[in-house]
Design a protein around this nucleic acid. Structure first.
Lengths: 348, 348
DNA sequence: GATCGCGCAGCAAGCGCTTTCTGCATCGAC
DNA sequence: GTCGATGCAGAAAGCGCTTGCTGCGCGATC
């Protein structure tokens, strides 16, 4: 029913071995023979059996990309860049590889399960994107998995994620702390003294790092860090909206709101407007990430640009072994402060 | 080195066959034996070899999801919904399936190549999302591929994509024509007579359908369809920005701009503002899709909401055989007009 | 007590490919 | 003319798993 290597071999009047070699192109085959085989492949419309070759060769051409939320452009942009380098169809790489984008939904269990699934598929490489969860047992479990994957020959790269100790994983981490510091420094420089902070989920490394940067800036300026000025939520606009109302309730005299990311910032803007406050005249707003829509907000969002596409591309190349990993296996990728319309000098 | 089924069998003192049956759970195994096997699996930290089992069983647990642009939330949202139903880790389905999100970048060749790659992997199902390219040879090639996939037992579902004739593929299409018609009807109802239209890439079905809906509305209102009022571009904000400037150049008296989608609409808004025009006082703007950020635009965007997540979920269920396909294998999914701040009565 | 049925486990034959090793020409060199 | 390279193709042994079939031991049946 389905065409197999043997069928092609029969048609081309060669042995299966030869067909395999023509298809994999890593062994000398006479031009005439190759020609004949290729023609037979074409005529029979033969498609290689992936599992079979993966089994025989003990390697597969699957590359896993783990993301927290595929519907979020933050991850979409990285995934897209990674995939472009993985050399799926159209990529520069010769061998065609299938990029598998796995949506963990931010759940540690699903992360682990996907890792197992990829291990099961004998993935050629795995790229984990986005912040990790700060939970010792889980971190250990992930580290163990990553070690096992590495042992099995799977290259592991972390993109926008903190390094995993005791692991061979290459890490390209974003300097969230530095970016947040610069952002809050900017606001303080404008004269703000009462800043609200809308943080992400408590247990995420990204959340903590950004918060630390923010606090470092406050401390450096001698501003007391009132815990009531920080609210935790999810990384989405809805959460930004709710958190802003809460912050305003706690302290109506706030002059600036720093959000965990751009989506949250947009939610904050909406809440401020609904509350009759102008941006930035009454309250300044700042985001993080600089996703494409941020520049279209009105006023456009002051934020920290993260080179998502560049980092993803680099991670992809490293995963494919087409670029040298950074020294020590760890590189910190800096963000860039983008000062735009949503931040200004505080009133009064 | 790596643990195999045989190792587990040895440790549990049973035959490999029994281990396999315990793992697949589709054959009676005595409780005590099962217990013993499971313990051995655990102790040896055994991970099934995916390719090997796929080869032996002639099926795999991979499910392909083709998207045009993974960095675009339009596709991200659908992909996310599909995947949730595919029953990856955490899904309701028992068997764990690996969702493979493939980024075609809108390129017909890559689409085809990915389809081949999925065929090669003997994917369990494939979901194609988003508009197709209107190119007869390519459409035929895709149809042929889909037929072949179906023959091989792969379930094929189209989500937000026109039906593929002569194919067993189930199609869930968006009623782009109807949505566009309603949108332009709304603007005409407000009194607009000079509407600019920023269309997507010429060769896409989505582009054509939306444009047809728009034109149908114009025709119904007896408004001449000046071809100079339509500009084609990509489905991104940049394109919306450029196209708007072009439309304004051609006819500064426009009172409304209808965009191919929300991203394009945002670009249009930016261009209008830069040109010193107010929205909607001077020019009304309308988008399409109702992506999450649309409500945060200022003014919030009048658009057509497409039930992306719902359609994706349904497509996912159908792909998994957990929901009956629609009668005739084709269902049209309607959008809903969302009237918001960006559209108003024209000046004068 | 012999027979049948049934529940459970093992045997062994592949699944379709890769790859090592072997073999046969052909060619150049001495 | 002979021998060793060299270049290319084939034979065959798996890769690790699934599954149809066989077989065994037990309680139920006549």
């Amino acid at each position: 029913m389905t065409v197999t290597l043997a069928d092609v071999a029969a048609r081309a009047q060669v042995s299966p071995a030869t067909v395999s070699r023509v298809l994999n192109g890593n062994y000398p085959v006479a031009a005439a023979t190759r020609e004949r085989v290729l023609r037979a492949v074409d005529e029979l419309d033969y498609v290689l059996n992936g599992p079979a070759s993966a089994l025989a060769a003990a390697t597969s051409d699957l590359v896993g990309i783990l993301v927290n939320d595929i519907a979020d452009p933050f991850f979409g942009i990285m995934a897209s860049a990674i995939q472009a380098e993985i050399g799926g169809p159209g990529g520069r790489a010769g061998g065609e590889r299938l990029a598998v984008v796995c949506n963990t939904g931010g759940s540690p269990e699903r992360e682990l399960t996907y890792l197992t699934l990829l291990q099961r598929q004998r993935a050629a490489a795995v790229v984990l994107t986005g912040g990790a969860v700060e939970d010792a047992p889980h971190a250990a479990a992930v580290a163990a998995k990553l070690r096992k994957l590495a042992d099995a020959g799977t290259r592991v790269v972390l993109c926008g994620r903190p390094p995993a100790p005791d692991t061979e994983a290459i890490a390209l981490t974003f300097d969230n702390r530095g970016g947040a510091r610069a952002l809050t420094d900017h606001l303080i420089g404008l004269g703000h003294r009462r800043l609200g902070y809308i943080a992400g989920p408590e247990e995420r490394t990204t959340t903590r790092h950004r918060l630390e940067g923010h606090r470092a800036a406050l401390a450096a300026a001698g501003i007391e860090d009132d815990p009531r000025r920080t609210v935790h939520g999810r990384y989405d606009r809805r959460s930004g909206h709710e958190a802003t109302l809460e912050l305003l309730r706690r302290d109506p005299s706030l002059t600036a709101i720093v959000a965990a990311n751009d989506s949250v910032a947009l939610g904050a803007c909406a809440a401020l407007r609904e509350s009759g406050l102008r941006i930035p005249e009454d309250v300044s707003v700042a985001g993080f990430d600089d996703l494409p829509f941020s520049i279209d907000a009105v006023p456009s969002l002051t934020t920290v640009r993260l080179p998502l596409a560049e980092a993803g591309a680099r991670a992809g190349r490293i995963a494919m072994g087409r670029e040298e990993p950074p020294l020590g296996g760890i590189a910190s990728v800096r963000g860039e402060l983008m000062v735009r319309g949503s931040s200004g000098v505080p009133r009064g």
